[in-house]
Each structure stands twice: as C-alpha cells, then as structure tokens.
Design a binder for these strands. Structure first.
Lengths: 211, 211
DNA sequence: TAGATTGTTAATCGATTAACAATC
DNA sequence: TAGATTGTTAATCGATTAACAATC
C-alpha cells in the first residue's frame, strides 16, 4: 500500500482534509469521488487515485464515509502527533505564526519563542515568553524540540540553522530565503517563500497585457 | 516564443531571479546553465529549457550574462510594473505583509489598508492609515487599485471578495481558505495556505517513523 | 584551433485522465 | 434487481532529462 506516495498527492491531502471538515460540520456523512472532485476542482478519477494510495476507504455504489475518511487523513498526515515546535524570530511573520494559527489543530505545540532583539525579550506572545536566542542550547537540553519555525532575517538564517542542526533539530518550516536543504540534505524542510509567490501573481497579472 | 509557458516554469522564475541577484551582488558577470543548475538544485538541461522559453539569452561556449538575464526575468515577471495594492485585514499576517516585505522591489505599491476593527482604525502601518473597510467603495472611486491582499478571517472573505470584485478588482493574493477561483473563474489568484504547508511538513516529519 | 556551452530535438519519466469490470 | 460508484488498469498528457549538433 505504501509504495512511495508522490509529493503531488501529499500536497492535495490538506485540501481533502479541509473540505472533509467542512462536510462534517454540515453533517454530511458520505461523499462520492465526483462530489469531492467538484469541491476540489479536479476530476473524480484523481480523487479515487489519490485516496486509493492509502487504502480502499470507499464503498461501491455508496461513496466515501466523511468522518472515517477525515480521520484516515488525520492519521496519514500525522496531525495527531503534537510535535514540539520552537519559533526563531519574533518579528511580524513569526508573531503571526505563533499567535494567529491554530497550531494545536495541526499537530504542533509551540514550546519556545526566541529572538535576538533585547528590546522584546521577556515580553509574551500567546502566553509564551520571548527568550534570548543565545539561550537556545540550554533550552534544548531541557526540552525536546521536534521542529523549528525559522522567521529570522536572511542574514541570520545560516548561523541559526547551524546551531539548531547541531542541537539535533532536523525539521524546519522555513520562511527565509536561506536554502537549508542545500547545506543539510538530510533535513526535512517546508519552504514558504512569500515573495516568490507574489512574483508569480505579478506574472499572471501581466499575462493578459502581453498578448 | 510565447506559446504558453507552463506553470512549473513560472514558479521557478522567482528563484532564478533571486539567485541572479545574488550573483550580481558578488559581481559575477556570467553563469553557465550547469552552475545555475547547481545553485537551483536541478539539471543544466532544465535550466536551458526554462530560459529558452523566453528567448536565447545565452551564448555558446560562454554561458548567460548575469545582469542581462536578471533584467529579462524582471521583465518577464513584470516586477517593474508597480501595481497598486490594497490590504484587507490588518491582523498579524496582514501587518507582516504590509510592513515587512519589500513590496516595491516586487512591483507592488501599497496604497491602502483596511480593517473592520474600530479599535485600530486610524493607526498606521508603514505610514499608511488603517481605514474602515466600509470606506472601500469610496476609496476605489478615487484610486485605481490593481490587486487586493486578502488577510481577513475566513468568515469575512466571501463577502469581502464579492465587494472587491464588484469594484472591479480581479487580482488577489489570498491568505484565507476561501476558494475565490471557485466562485469567480475569471480572476487571478495566488493562494497562500500556510496551514496546508504546515500539514505537508507534518507528513514528511512522520514519513520516516512509518517505515 | 580546441574547449566550453548553448539551443533544440528526442527519450524518459511521472502525473493526470479515461474507461470499465466489480460490487454494494 | 437496477443504479451508483468504487478500485484499478490502460491511455494520454505534460514535464523532466539526455543527447548532440551548432557555434562562440
């Protein structure tokens, strides 16, 4: 069953999950691949292919049971894991991540926030004190950390990752333009390059004008 | 030359652009597809294919001139356009976008910021006053707006987009989970679904454990 | 000239879509 | 049973990689 799921399939799973949550809220208890395809704006064929990567959750002539399928996806993604996360860089983006996202619903517990700006050390975000980034080593020796959310300026990123890597942290949610994977091929990285995405939008806004 | 560039190519352009800027800063004045491939962590073949979509910028036996190529990409992406943008929702993410990103370098000018929280109306982000979202119509009748950055809570998104669409705004940078494209097939949307990306990271953190 | 490196065509690989027998 | 809808195989489509002649 588990013969290497492709990245494209994985990237669609969160969307299935979201839509299944919505269906569940509306107390819909079954859904066909056709209906799901419509919500996802794809084909029924793709929906069936995707879901079948993980096992036969559907029933012929009936469709897929919403709650069961939702729970399966929670399991596949590992949203019930409660990984321990730290935030490095409590600027605007870091603060947004730490305070505005429902991290616990996504399988993450924020356990520490670090910055190097002495002016904000000690103040709190979401009940968590902002600590000096120099206290990272000490912190990690007392607390297991699974993943770091990297929201520093680009210049600080390389050194910070080096430190974190040496402390055994191998998972990164990277908001900087520092190419972590390039220097550390064994880590797991999810990059969020906001400016890249904005440039892509810029291109599509341009597209029509060109013709 | 312009026979429909694929989305995959477009999504790589911002990275070419970034790396070319870095090379330029280091005063490198030419670069081969092989070297670029190494920086981009792809193949020389892909680099040449990508760049050739837009014209022959390279010279045999020499490579690509860094500055020329960078400027071409600026043109292709339209980063020299200065589109006029408004921000809807001045919460943490909205504020991060408006204050921390170098929007002008990416071809965007922030011209207005809107929120419905009366407590923050009138205060400023990056020299721009936060306006009442109800004054949108009036604002748009005086000021040309090309694109909206949508950073509201999900519940507010649908109504807000309806309003904006009726005011003639057809481009969106969407941070909410509201599916704009689904309701308005003619608009250009770039979605940023942070929680989806975090779930993807969650999956890859899980991956090893599973085997 | 010889070496390097492009532009471009062909080959491969992977992802999406179509089709349909199985079956609830 | 008849209709609906799955699981799965085959066909298509698109994107990536390899190869190589052209040429700076």
């Amino acid at each position: 069953m588990n013969n290497k799921i492709s990245k494209s399939v994985i990237r669609r799973l969160p969307r299935y999950y979201r839509f299944l949550c919505e269906l569940e809220e509306k107390e819909v208890d079954r859904v066909s691949s056709g209906k799901l395809a419509q919500i996802m704006r794809t084909t029924a064929s793709q929906v069936r292919q995707d879901l079948n990567c993980f096992g036969g959750f559907g029933h012929q002539g009936y469709g897929y049971p919403v709650t069961t399928l939702k729970n399966e996806i929670i399991n596949i993604l590992g949203l019930n894991n409660h990984y321990r996360a730290i935030l490095i860089g409590a600027g605007h983006i870091g603060t947004a991540i730490a305070s505005h996202m429902k991290l616990d619903k996504l399988g993450f517990d924020m356990v520490g926030i670090f910055d190097n700006n002495t002016a904000i050390l000690g103040s709190k975000i979401n009940m968590l004190e902002i600590r000096d980034v120099n206290s990272l080593k000490e912190f990690c020796s007392n607390t297991k950390v699974d993943v770091a959310f990297l929201c520093t300026p680009k210049e600080a990123a390389k050194d910070t990752v080096k430190k974190l890597y040496e402390l055994g942290i191998k998972n990164f949610w990277n908001f900087t333009h520092y190419d972590i994977q390039g220097d550390y091929p064994d880590v797991k990285v999810e990059n969020v390059h906001l400016s890249d995405m904005l440039m892509t939008l810029c291109y599509s806004m341009n597209e029509d004008a060109d013709e």
